[in-house]
Design a protein around this nucleic acid. Structure first.
Lengths: 263, 263
DNA sequence: TAGATTGTTAATCGATTAACAATC
DNA sequence: TAGATTGTTAATCGATTAACAATC
């Protein structure tokens, strides 16, 4: 019974995501980790449609990356393809799921049950394999005690004071912040205090967290502003600024009255 | 009347974001562009609190980056600081706003007025300087014709067929997709057809768009999965996989019956 | 002036890419 | 076998970092 190609251990040794690899071995670059969920989703979709195998060219195209990048990314996980054939969809999907830690469920606590929080927990993407909303928290008395239906059942919103208890009793690992910006830092502090080490932050603030706690920020305003930058470039393709002679709006006062504006 | 330090033109010439710079000149790296909105927000906050000047060390700390990175980023825009003093908050804020194209407003059209779409348009972050929701679109007859209050006024949801007309009449430049995944590609096609070149996609699919159209993807599932990866590493710090001897769930069929699983 | 802080340089690091030997 | 496609290499590219000369 021939074993799969043994994962190429050793290699050079870039500094990346701690240790990992198929059964032992190489570190996985952060850029690769961020793409694995996309590969996994597309593979799941192919699997649902009954596609048995896929080439790196086909899969890459469906994922919006180049085939070279895809193959390189997958090579960090091990040798799961077959030369001349491609990848077995179900097998590769499972390997990625395993690498991402999706084979057992992670408990998620959502703090801030306003419009956004409610929208997210009812969002299909949340139910995607490996995650379960195990608690809803809010500080507002009007919201606490109300029932919100998440994917598989109903949850009662609990007050902020019960966050610690909730995290412990439900074995939650991930916190999602959907509060107003003003209170987000306080919520983050409480989450860390409660033992959470992974946070998704939807509030438009930079969170200050201790070493070892990972924060992923989701910010519509940032996305819009990056797009606006490119829109502006489109309008004046050669020389950035269109209305360059408009009146200097802010009048620098403190130092640098010399640095007012230039034509 | 001394002019500000002339922007250092020329330099080496990395390939980055087309052309740009203070009044002419250097390209701005994408990584820098993605951080400018954060700098801008923090500067706005400092300005609101009446802080007149800030050092790169202070600002960097508030933005969650290193001061070296901050200064390098700002150097792409021009020389807007004062050695020995720091940066004038209002002045620097304005320069970044100008660079990002936030000095004139960009019209935004939101397609998909479900829970998420509604939450986003009522979200404060949307009202952040330079953006205005000028249209709401939905395909569902129950939603079309209903009124939704956005930041400054009410908008009536229009049917998908009126997207072209809407984009043209309101001079919209950015499209936001908050529909179910199944229809997102169709919506993207229609947006491109309507003339939009900037899209924010909240649907969990990879959109296929022509050259020149920019898509920013926002995906909670991806964020959660990246965090799950790190959580898993935390559980088994040395050797990635904990339950490595669990039964091989997917049985690869097509090729590679040889590549079943390894211990 | 002396102290503080910027703007820039150069080295390092990580990510991408193209090409191709290995091999199914 | 001949054709197809992976896994890996090496070159390139872009981003980060530390250090410091310039200068307010």
């Amino acid at each position: 019974m021939p074993l799969p190609n043994p994962p190429a251990v050793g290699a050079s040794g870039r500094r990346s995501v701690s240790v990992s690899g198929p059964t032992s071995g190489k570190a996985i670059p952060e850029a690769t980790v961020a793409r694995l969920p996309v590969y996994h989703r597309v593979l799941t979709s192919l699997s649902d449609r009954g596609v048995p195998t896929v080439s790196s060219e086909e899969l890459a195209s469906a994922c919006g990356v180049t085939s070279a990048k895809l193959r390189k990314d997958l090579s960090y996980l091990g040798s799961y393809g077959t030369r001349g054939v491609g990848y077995d969809v179900a097998f590769l999907s499972y390997q990625i799921a395993r690498e991402l830690g999706l084979t057992n469920p992670w408990g998620v606590v959502v703090v801030g049950v306003g419009n956004l929080g409610r929208a997210l927990v009812s969002y299909r993407g949340f139910a995607s394999r490996g995650f379960q909303v195990v608690g809803l928290v809010d500080a507002h008395p009007d919201v606490v005690g109300t029932t919100v239906s998440v994917v598989d059942r109903d949850l009662v919103v609990v007050p902020l004071e019960e966050l610690d208890e909730l995290v412990a009793s439900k074995d939650a690992h991930i916190g999602v912040i959907t509060t107003p910006a003003e209170v987000a830092q306080d919520i983050a502090d409480r989450m860390v205090e409660a033992g959470l080490r992974s946070i998704v932050n939807f509030a438009p603030v930079v969170l200050n967290v201790p070493e070892g706690v990972e924060v992923r920020k989701v910010d519509l305003a940032v996305e819009l502003q990056v797009l606006a930058f490119h829109e502006q470039r489109r309008k004046s393709p050669v020389n950035g600024v269109v209305t360059n002679l408009e009146p200097p709006i802010p009048t620098p006062h403190d130092p640098r009255s010399s640095k007012a504006m230039n034509a």
